[in-house]
Design a binder for these strands. Structure first.
Length: 440
DNA sequence: TCTGGGGTCCTAGGACCC
DNA sequence: TCTGGGGTCCTAGGACCC
C-alpha cells in the first residue's frame, strides 16, 4: 500500500504557525510581486477566491471581507517543509518527497487492520511537532492514494482515508470527475469524453491500448493504477534534471544592464542549487519575455542555449556564458517583464555509481560485440531482460525501441503487438536503456 | 536508380504536476 | 495599473549509422 501525506493549505498553514491569530480567518498568500493568489485558507476558498487568480481581480472582495494577505516567503516554507518531511521520515523510512508539501510513503510492513489509527497518530504528531495540519490518503497505488487523499481532505473529520479495490471504490470513481484523477487535466478530460469516457469508472474499465493511442502511455498507466495495478514506484532519491530560476519584474525593464543584473542574480541562485545537489551542468538556456498580457505593447520573447565541452558548476563561468547568450537575443526598444536561466544536462559531480550498474552495462556492451550473424539484437536483449527480471523478482521490464515504432506499417504492427503484450504482461515498461540501468 | 531492416541520439513542443 | 515559478515525462521527427 502507498500513502500520500499532504499538508493542508501549506503556505497559509506556515503563516499561521507564526501568527496564531490567523486561525479561523480567511488568509491568502501571494506570488512574487504580489501578482497572483497562490494559496488560500479554507475560509478564503469559501469566499470563492480561486487558485492562481490575479490579485487585482479580487482586491475588492478581499478588502470587503477582511481577508489577510501575505507576500510569499519561500525560505520559510522550505524550512517548514523540511521539518514536516523529517517528522514523517521518523515514522516511515521509505518515502518520496513529491513536492514542497507532499510526500508518498510506502506502507509495506504496516498492519492493514490498524492503518487508520496509525495514520491518525502520525498526523497528530506531525501537527504537534511542526504546527502544520496534514491529510493522509492510502491506496494500493500512488494514483489511488492521491484519490484517497482528496477524499480525506474533503469528507473526513480525522483527515485519513483508505481506498481498497471494492464496491466502494467503484462508487467513488463513478461519482468523481475525470479531472479529479491525478494526471488528467482539462485537455485529456475533453479528449476522453470525445470517445465516450465520461467518468473515472469508465476510464478504469476501458481498454488500456485504446487509451494509450489517445493520450499516450501516461494515460495507459492511469488505467492500470485505477485498477490497483501499480505502475508508478516510489522514487526515493531524486536529483533534479534541470534547474530554473526566473522572475517577473515589478516594473518593466528595457535597459540591457538592468537585465544583466537580474540575470546574474538568477544564475547565482541557480548555481547554488546546482552545487547543493552536487551536480555539474553541461549547458544553459536563458530566456526573456515582454509582458504577454499587455496586448497594446510590442511583444517579443526569445531564448538561447549553449552546450559546454566540459560540465561546470562555477558561478562566474556560467554568468559569463549567460551574458554572451543575452547579447544574442537582446533587442532594444522592448519593455521586458521577465528573464530566466535554466541549467541543463545535469550530471552527478562525484562518481557514485552502483556496482551492479557496471555489470549490466558491460553485459550490454559485450552484447553489441558478440552477436552472431543470425541472432537479432532485440531477441538477445529480451533474453537479458528476462534475466534481469527474474533476478530482480520483477516482471516489469519491457523493451521496445522508439525507432521500431515509426519505421513502416509492418513494423508498426509488430510494435503494437509488442505493446499489447506488455499491457497484458505488465503495465510498466521502458523504452530506454538508461531506465533499465536505473531499475537494476 | 531504387529499395530494407534495425537501430541511436537529439530536439522541440506539448502534455501534465505542485 | 496590477496577471507566479519550478518541475517531469512523452512523442514525433530529423540526422545519422551499419
Amino acid at each position: 500500500m502507498y500513502g500520500l501525506v499532504d499538508c493542508n493549505n501549506f503556505y497559509v498553514s506556515c503563516e499561521r504557525v507564526f501568527n496564531p491569530l490567523l486561525k479561523g480567518q480567511p488568509v491568502v498568500v501571494l506570488s512574487n510581486n504580489d501578482g497572483c493568489i497562490i494559496a488560500r485558507s479554507n475560509e478564503a476558498k469559501a469566499l470563492g477566491i480561486p487558485m492562481g487568480a490575479p490579485l487585482h481581480l479580487y482586491k475588492k472582495l478581499i478588502d470587503q471581507k477582511n481577508v489577510f494577505t501575505y507576500s510569499s516567503n519561500y525560505t520559510l516554507y522550505g524550512d517548514m517543509s523540511a521539518r514536516v518531511m523529517d517528522s514523517l521520515n521518523y515514522f516511515v523510512p521509505d518515502m518520496e518527497i513529491y513536492s514542497i508539501d507532499e510526500a508518498f510513503i510506502s506502507l509495506k510492513g504496516f498492519n492493514l487492520n490498524s492503518l487508520v489509527e496509525e495514520m491518525s497518530d502520525i498526523r497528530k504528531l506531525i501537527y504537534q511537532w511542526t504546527g502544520i495540519p496534514t491529510s493522509i490518503g492510502v491506496g494500493p497505488t500512488k494514483t489511488l492514494a492521491k484519490l484517497a487523499n482528496k477524499i480525506a481532505k474533503k469528507y473526513t473529520s480525522n483527515g485519513v482515508y483508505i481506498v481498497t479495490i471494492s464496491d466502494q471504490l467503484t462508487q467513488i470513481l463513478d461519482d468523481m470527475k475525470l479531472e479529479d484523477i491525478w494526471g488528467i487535466s482539462k485537455g485529456w478530460g475533453a479528449r476522453l469524453r470525445s470517445i465516450g469516457i465520461n467518468t473515472p469508472l469508465q476510464l478504469q474499465q476501458s481498454d488500456p491500448c485504446q487509451i494509450r493511442k489517445l493520450i499516450s502511455v501516461v494515460g495507459e498507466r492511469i488505467v492500470y493504477e485505477l485498477r490497483g495495478n501499480s505502475c508508478l514506484q516510489l522514487e526515493e532519491v531524486v536529483n533534479k534534471k534541470t534547474i530554473t530560476v526566473s522572475r517577473s519584474f515589478g516594473n518593466m525593464i528595457d535597459d540591457k544592464d538592468d537585465l544583466k543584473k537580474a540575470l546574474a542574480n538568477h544564475v547565482v541562485r541557480a548555481a547554488e542549487k546546482l552545487r547543493y545537489q552536487d551536480s555539474l551542468c553541461s549547458g544553459i538556456h536563458i530566456f526573456i519575455n515582454t509582458n504577454r498580457y499587455r496586448k497594446q505593447d510590442l511583444q517579443y520573447s526569445n531564448g538561447a542555449m549553449i552546450n559546454f565541452d566540459e560540465p561546470i558548476d562555477n558561478t562566474v563561468e556560467i554568468i559569463n556564458e549567460s551574458f554572451k547568450l543575452l547579447e544574442n537575443i537582446y533587442r532594444s526598444n522592448y519593455n521586458y517583464k521577465k528573464i530566466g536561466v535554466v541549467l541543463l544536462g545535469l550530471k552527478q559531480n562525484k562518481k557514485n555509481v552502483i556496482e551492479n550498474t557496471y555489470i549490466i552495462q558491460s553485459n550490454l556492451f559485450t552484447l553489441n560485440q558478440n552477436l552472431s550473424n543470425n541472432s537479432k539484437k532485440s531477441d538477445v536483449c529480451m533474453k537479458l531482460f528476462d534475466d534481469i527480471n527474474s533476478r530482480m523478482g520483477k516482471k516489469t521490464l519491457f523493451y521496445g525501441s522508439q525507432g521500431m515504432q515509426k519505421r513502416s506499417k509492418k513494423i508498426k504492427q509488430k510494435a503494437d503487438k509488442w505493446s499489447m503484450r506488455s499491457c497484458y504482461k505488465s503495465p510498466s515498461y521502458t523504452t530506454k536503456w538508461n531506465d533499465v540501468l536505473k531499475v537494476y
